[in-house]
């Protein structure tokens, strides 16, 4: 599983951090997404897919 994030789409909601805290974080100054792990282990799959689905800016793409 490969993850990409579009920082310019990010609205800083932080929904991804709530869904998958081991994979996503936010910059302190503006809340823009920080990808902690672009190729997370299978155990993170469900959490990552949740994060991509709840992202209100559709900024997270998951490539299988």
């Amino acid at each position: 599983m490969q993850i990409t994030v579009a920082e310019e789409h990010c609205c800083g909601a932080g929904q991804c951090v709530l869904a998958a805290p081991d994979v996503f974080d936010q910059r302190d100054e503006d809340g823009v997404v920080v990808l902690l792990d672009a190729t997370p282990p299978e155990s993170q799959r469900a959490a990552v897919l949740d994060a991509a689905a709840v992202c209100p800016a559709a900024a997270i793409a998951v490539h299988e």
């Binding site: 909601a13 929904q15 949740d50 689905a53 709840v54 992202c55 209100p56 800016a57």
Partner: peptide, 11 residues
């Protein structure tokens, strides 16, 4: 009527 809710409620 907001975007975040649409995604979360659909799920």
């Amino acid at each position: 009527e907001h975007r975040t809710n649409a995604g979360e409620q659909g799920m």
